[in-house]
Design a protein around this nucleic acid. Structure first.
Length: 726
RNA sequence: GCGCGCUUAGCUCAGUUGGUAGAGCAACUCAUUUACACUGAGAAGGUCGGGGGUUCAAGUCCCUCAGCGCGCACCA
């Protein structure tokens, strides 16, 4: 067949490798990822409705994985759709310093490569190394985001640890300090002996392990047996607590027993009654260790018992004779059990399944220790916010639907977390992060945005939990604390926060906390949670399992559009999905199909020029238009409702099964034997439909659609074309 | 202990307010140079985890049981 107007490019299969980088460059150089440029160039109306999203900043701990790829794809679909609808669209990029995660990663590398510890290097030198690592990770991440086709406004890129964000952090801290929401307190915290830092409750992961539960008494003349899985902590016991209604132990309550020698340590044990003790558990009597157990510490404070620390920051014993002193807790445990056996004090030992607490990032086993740390009070009433506490602020905006969570079931998860929420420990004994803006001089304490004047002030050595700065992200990236900044005014109330469900507590909740408190408004209107991407066997992808697929590798093999489609299709919100190469291959074929559809449409138009306002359609085409427009309407509605998987499926089906397989086949005889009117009507319909398919598909498969658009000789970028309206 | 999710074709998953089950991949038959082989046509494949209930009608709503997965709490 003669192909008068066909670009020779269409005679070969679509080649994503040759296309994608070139197209991204074209977009980037146009400047149209930036809404200000869109307005300047007349692409977007300056009074148009705003649409903004912040990219969940990837941690600078290495490279992007398929989960990030999913995030980028889903958000890019939303953003491109909004942009094509003529909204002033901002998608703001950034990366996260990820304090403890990055630091522990660099520590591991240095230890492996040089056999050194961070203390061998010193704070300054070590931080230089971390910064170098972070910078390299950052560069990789940025180039990967671009590979994914993400239409991010790079001119506004932010980092959670840069100067501007540091100012935001200091400002926020100071406000909370002045409002007495931040306080310094001495209490039992989660100490990570491996990372040598405190961590928050949310940074603990649990693992089921077999453990032994020992039932014993402190001495032969002690009247009550107690049970424990950690006999080594018992050298720090000051009391035995029983339930007040427990008749078995009633007669002992109030008495104090002196144990002269418990494995080399003298104890003085008071028998107390406390409601927290369950009669049915173990012997119904609880050895109270105020320094090394959260619950025990609470009991102790109710009964004015002293706190006796017996384990230090290195998880080693600080009391006892040579048998246990300076020994690791696990070793001391064996010594004490042996001692109990020798002295005939051990009644029984049983094997149980126990949840052990570990630090998420380092894998260190958590040691509860009493320490002086900084906390955010989540229960204190805030006069500036209708006398609500942070907990209440977080709860209310979801309850009253100021924030909608999709899928809805995660609202319950969110409520459940808030109900159990304790004061948030925000200080960390690590080096990489925002320094706490507090200075000490003798007994004076100063909290300020800037360093205090005068001699002799020493800044707090600790840094802040990384989520403190992440919590400010929606507005710290928009110019805050400068409330007159144009971005702050136009974009800070973001439309949707899109992320994987596994950071709902870490991040989503903290942003809601910070924004409702500091600004008195919500950070976003909708939270859209997607699931985790798993391997073909349903396992979470991880480096240690060696099952993580590298998005860049897949892109090189199949093209970005194919990877994007496979991440979106067949996945409902909040549901995990499995990734397989078969699926990606199918969408690679689809990109080529689209390519060939274009080739056919262009080659068969026979001199007719595309006329978007063509009106002389014949009945046959009118029917087809009606059918097509109905589908476009549905797709538009579905994307607006975040049902990308449905919309994508629909446009896929329409182009392939309907347009290519049926409509194109039917047109062949028309173009061969039809009248001029018939040919014209059909040719216009085909061109018009192809145009609309390309526009609708663009958010999903931006590269191939833009490449076709450009090859067809269109003036504007498809990226900023108007979405088809019916 | 509290809560959530999943169970639909061989595999991976959709199925929006209840109206006779869909897609991709794989496998099967046919077509053999076509806009496209990164292709087309066709056929095959499911008592929607088990049981019970509501309803004219249930994959969808309710109850219950089971298996798998997850979150939170507990963890003396």
């Amino acid at each position: 067949m003669q192909e008068p107007n066909t670009d020779p490019k269409f005679l070969k299969p679509y080649n994503p490798q040759e296309t994608e980088d070139r197209i991204y460059k074209l977009w980037e150089e146009s400047g149209l990822f930036n809404p200000d440029v869109c307005i300047e160039k007349g692409v977007t109306d300056k009074d148009a409705k705003a649409f903004s999203i912040v990219l969940p900043p990837p941690n600078v701990t290495g490279t992007l994985h398929l989960g990030h790829a999913a995030t980028l794809t889903i958000e890019d679909i939303m953003v491109r759709f909004a942009r094509m609808q003529g909204k002033r669209t901002l998608w703001l990029p950034g990366t996260d310093h990820a304090a403890i995660a990055t630091q522990s990663k660099v520590e591991k590398i240095i230890e492996k490569e040089e056999g050194k510890r961070k203390t061998d290097l010193g704070r300054e030198e070590f931080l230089k190394r971390v910064e170098k690592f972070a910078q390299d990770s950052h560069d990789t991440i940025v180039s990967q985001c671009k590979k994914m086709g993400a239409s991010l406004d790079w001119s506004r890129e932010a980092y959670t640890l840069d100067e501007k964000r540091n100012l935001a952090v200091r400002t926020a801290f100071k406000k909370m300090y002045d409002d007495k929401l931040i306080y310094r307190g001495h209490r039992i915290v989660n100490w990570d002996p491996k990372g040598q830092t405190v961590i928050s409750d949310d940074e603990i992961v649990y693992e089921e392990r077999k453990a032994k539960m020992y039932t014993f008494k402190y001495s032969s003349d002690f009247p009550i047996y107690i049970s424990t899985t950690r006999p080594e902590t018992k050298v720090g016991d000051v009391a035995v607590a029983v339930n007040p209604s427990d008749e078995r132990y009633e007669k002992y309550i109030g008495k104090t027993y002196v144990v002269e020698d418990f494995c080399g340590v003298p104890l003085s044990i008071k028998i107390i009654a406390d409601e927290a003790v369950e009669k049915e558990f173990g012997t119904g009597a609880l050895g109270v260790t105020p320094a090394h157990s959260q619950i025990d510490s609470e009991i102790a404070s109710r009964h004015n018992l002293e706190t006796k620390q017996v384990i230090n920051e290195f998880a080693k014993m600080t009391v006892g004779g040579e048998r246990i002193l300076n020994k690791k807790t696990t070793e001391a445990r064996e010594v004490i059990v042996a001692w109990l056996k020798e002295n005939d004090l051990l009644e029984k030992e049983e094997e149980i399944i126990q949840n052990i607490s570990m630090a998420e990032r380092t894998g260190g086993i958590i040691e509860p220790l009493p320490k002086l740390q900084w906390f955010i009070d989540v229960n204190k009433k805030i006069s500036e916010r209708d006398n609500k506490s942070l907990k209440e602020l977080m709860l209310d905006v979801v309850k009253d639907k100021s924030i909608e969570i999709i899928p809805e079931r995660f609202e319950r998860v969110y409520y459940n977390w808030i109900e159990n929420l304790r004061d948030w420990c925000i200080s960390r004994q690590i080096w990489y992060g925002h320094r706490i803006p507090v200075w000490y001089k003798d007994k004076e304490i100063y909290c300020g945005i800037e360093e205090p004047k005068g001699e002799g002030w020493e800044q707090d050595l600790d840094t802040l939990d990384t989520w403190f700065s992440s919590g400010l992200w929606t507005f710290s990236t928009m110019g805050w604390p400068n409330v007159n900044s144009p971005d702050f005014i136009a974009y800070r109330k973001t439309d949707v926060l899109e992320t994987a469900y596994d950071i709902i507590f870490f991040w989503v909740a903290r942003m809601i906390l910070m924004t409702t408190y500091i600004l008195g408004e919500v950070p976003f209107k909708t939270v859209y949670l997607h699931g985790l991407v798993r391997d073909t066997q349903g396992r979470k992808m991880s480096k240690s399992l060696g099952n993580s697929l590298d998005p860049v590798e897949l892109i090189n093999k199949y093209g970005t559009d194919a990877v994007r489609m496979s991440l979106v299709m067949g996945t409902g919100p909040g549901n995990d999905s499995k990734m397989s190469e078969d699926k990606i291959r199918a969408y690679k074929n689809y990109a080529n199909k689209l390519w060939n559809i274009t080739r056919f449409v262009i080659s068969s138009k026979e001199g007719f020029e595309y006329n978007p306002t063509f009106e002389k359609y014949l009945d046959q085409e009118k029917k087809l238009i009606k059918e097509r427009d109905e589908i476009i309407k549905e797709i538009t509605k579905e994307i607006g409702e975040y049902k990308f998987y449905l919309a994508g499926e629909k446009i896929y089906q329409y182009t392939w099964s309907r347009f290519a397989d049926v409509i194109i086949e039917e047109s062949k005889p028309i173009f061969q034997n039809g009248t001029k009117e018939e040919k014209e009507s059909r040719a216009e319909f085909m061109l018009d439909t192809l145009t609309k398919i390309l526009k609708i598909l663009h958010p999903f498969m931006p590269f191939v659609t833009e490449e076709i658009w450009q090859t067809m000789g269109k003036e504007k970028l498809l990226m900023v074309e108007k979405w088809p309206t019916i």
